[in-house]
Nucleic acid binder design. Structure first.
Lengths: 245, 245
DNA sequence: CGCAATATTGATTTGTTTCAAGTACAGTGG
DNA sequence: CCACTGTACTTGAAACAAATCAATATTGCG
């Protein structure tokens, strides 16, 4: 079965462990049957009672939140190896919509919680996973809060690139199964601005467009610079934390 | 994927428990001595090794992330009852700066982790706490991604109002220990825009300014409407999740 | 009181959105 | 195989919200 290519989005922030964490998280689904869903289907709706956790075996989903007037925010994308549901309390925080063709497994929250009481190793995996989610969300808040369109797109492409390469994808190629509109809703931009920004970066030879669903990164260093990846600031003072008496 | 309001703003999403969670979490600090810090001091720096967790007993802090070019994002505010550090892996994700005068307690991550292995109830508190952080971060992403200045400020004031009232503060009054600049960095706006927006809401009699550090909410319903608080969307279809064969 | 920090208000600029065409492309059926 | 159709994407021009630049007002404080 496919369980062996399960692994989680490698999260750079903490060095270490994340990728292997995910393998482990996916593993608790191993007895579950594979299910399928096609483009446009919705695994679960924001606000519904959160009965299940899902493990994505293949394909891509978008994670959406809607405002009452129809505005949509995409708070993330899911792909093979990702597990979704660990962060839900009694209700789903967002909807999960299928982008292409998805193969997935599910398990009830109930049995997940049983596993959790039984397996101590699973507990630390879950903690680690939740901490990664918090960290990733922080990054996204920084992006949405103060980055320009070019910085946002550059950040996004780099993240996708690194994820893809970590998965063993071809070097320098970013796969983009989602539409420009999806990317816009993820980056807090309109479709038009995403399109124009792609054109700009392309004009500066940082990237090259390869059809609708792929972009080649020509100059990763320059792209990283464009993304505003902090060299770093030097700590000019010590934290109160260090002055312990 | 999410980030945080580290403070545990009571999060409405899941009904229940958040405020009391925080109280409970604070309890594990009970043996720790009280420490003090004054305006401008920094409890810990983003990027430093995360050695401690902190429990805020009194006063206010801002939680900041900096970009290399000096742009600042405030991802949350901390106040009495809040515990910060549960979401850190090996490094602090952000800096914590004192706004006014703060009384706090600390405990090493190490001993926190020991407590965690010993106390099963603590484990579910921590999980719950992390899930609230994820939820709060999601909300902030929605705000930053697609709300106008007026909606952002209205959302912020409402959140502060509800938190304050839940803490037993005076009805209708929002306390704002932070500067307009802080509010701007939290909402992804400039100082000037925050100021102008306050003036606008004030002109429409939704709020009344009471000195620098307080605002009275005159019409909570209208303010909630201005905040874009979703009436609700009706689920027009069932999730794939429901169609299980 | 008088200074420095914070906040407000005004005028102008700018990046992004909005509105409006127009183009490329995948899928369908003839 | 190709024309037809609908969707996604790109590009341009105009409108707009918020940022920026600049000045003034208010507040807290030594």
């Amino acid at each position: 079965m496919l369980a062996n290519n399960l692994h989680l989005v490698p999260n750079i922030i903490d060095g270490a462990v994340t990728a292997s964490d995910a393998v482990s998280l996916g593993i608790i689904f191993k007895k579950q049957p594979l299910e399928r869903a096609t483009a446009g289907q919705i695994l679960f709706f924001e606000g519904d009672a959160a009965k299940h956790l899902f493990s994505i075996v293949e394909g891509n989903l978008r994670i959406c939140r809607l405002l009452s007037d129809g505005r949509r925010v995409i708070t993330g994308f899911l792909k093979n190896g990702d597990v979704v549901g660990v962060s839900f309390k009694s209700r789903y925080l967002y909807s999960a919509e299928v982008i292409d063709e998805v193969v997935f497994q599910r398990m009830t929250k109930r049995s997940f919680e049983e596993e959790l009481t039984v397996l101590p190793q699973l507990r630390s995996l879950v903690l680690s996973r939740l901490r990664d989610e918090v960290a990733a969300a922080q990054d996204q808040m920084v992006l949405l809060s103060c980055k320009s369109a070019e910085e946002r797109l550059a950040s996004f492409l780099l993240k996708q690139l690194r994820h893809g390469e970590a998965q063993g994808g071809p070097r320098g190629m970013v796969s983009l199964p989602m539409t420009r509109h999806d990317i816009g809703d993820y980056l807090g931009l309109t479709t038009e601005t995403v399109s124009r920004t792609v054109t700009k970066l392309s004009g500066r030879r940082l990237i090259a467009v390869c059809g609708r669903n792929a972009i080649q990164v020509l100059n990763e260093t320059a792209l990283a610079h464009q993304a505003g990846e902090g060299e770093d600031y030097d700590d000019l003072g010590k934290a109160v934390g260090q002055y312990r008496h």
